[in-house]
């Protein structure tokens, strides 16, 4: 079972190529060009993982992270940062993101982080369900 992924970035081309590459690897990928749009999609669909750019006009990555975690606490978020915003990535992790990746990024690194994040998500959900069953 492959995770459902939402990629959020204001650079359209980056978004296109990253999503195509993930699709090649048979991930279920959706894209969003802004924080606002991403929040909308997160609420409407069931994503497992959100890959979120830190620097965006409008609602920025950190703010979007907060909202996502508020709406769907089990969604795992991986932050995308430029060199100038490593600090923002770290800040994201403090706020509950699973990890951060620096742009430009190695596909293998990202994929490994996606898989690990998905494993954790499943684990957390099972724990939560188990508690519910008892």
């Amino acid at each position: 079972m492959k995770p459902k992924i939402l990629i959020v970035d204001d650079e359209e081309k980056f978004l296109t190529y990253l999503s195509k590459r993930l699709k090649m690897r048979e991930y279920d990928v959706a894209t969003s060009l802004s924080g606002e749009d991403a929040l909308e999609k997160v609420r409407q669909h069931n994503f497992d993982i959100v890959i979120l750019d830190v620097l965006m006009p409008g609602i920025d990555g950190i703010e979007a992270l907060r909202e996502i975690k508020k709406a769907k606490p089990f969604i795992e978020v991986i932050m995308l940062t430029g060199h100038a915003s490593v600090e923002a990535g770290v800040e994201g992790m403090r706020l509950g993101a699973y990890d951060y990746v620096m742009k430009p990024c190695e596909a293998e690194e990202l994929i490994s982080k996606i898989n690990k994040a998905y494993e954790r998500k499943v684990e957390m959900e099972e724990q939560s369900l188990g508690r519910g069953a008892r």
Binding site: E11, Y17, K20, L55, G82, A84, P104, C105
Partner: peptide, 20 residues
């Protein structure tokens, strides 16, 4: 710093499209 960040954007796209 601002310019370096700006350069990072095309580099990230190049990286993605080349890999693709």
């Amino acid at each position: 710093a601002g310019l370096a960040h700006e350069i990072n954007n095309p580099l990230a796209i190049i990286n993605e499209s080349a890999n693709y």
